[in-house]
């Protein structure tokens, strides 16, 4: 089971939409994947606690993070969406 940490400013609106999209994409590609949402300020501690396979964020992140970070804005704007999806799938298939 893969784990993706989804971060946005308040973990309220954008991260919810992005998290559901990621789950849908994973499912369509036959990848077992769970998402956990985090507020920007909690992201580093959640990262240390959960060791996610990737972090998808719509906000800037602080702290030294040694996991792949994907800009999740494409899931909202549709701009460069396919390359973002490809990037995510590549990480999750590892």
């Amino acid at each position: 089971m893969k784990l993706v940490l989804v971060a946005c400013g308040t973990a309220l609106a954008t991260s919810t939409v992005v998290a559901r999209k990621i789950e849908q994409i994973a499912q369509e590609n036959g990848i077992e994947c769970k998402t956990v949402q985090a507020r920007a300020v909690d992201t580093f501690s959640k990262y240390q606690e959960l060791h996610p396979d990737a972090i998808v964020c719509t906000c800037q992140l602080e702290g030294e993070i040694d996991a792949p970070i994907i800009n999740g804005r494409a899931f909202l704007t549709g701009i460069n969406l396919q390359s973002t999806i490809d990037q995510l799938i590549e990480i999750l298939k590892k």
Binding site: C8, G9, T10, L12, A13, T14, A40, C59, R73, L76, T77, G78, I79
Partner: peptide, 17 residues
């Protein structure tokens, strides 16, 4: 945590807790 999105016509999605 700004919310501007550079879509064809720019959109912002401000919100709070």
């Amino acid at each position: 945590f700004p919310t501007g999105l550079p879509t064809k016509i720019g959109v912002a999605l401000p919100h709070t807790e």
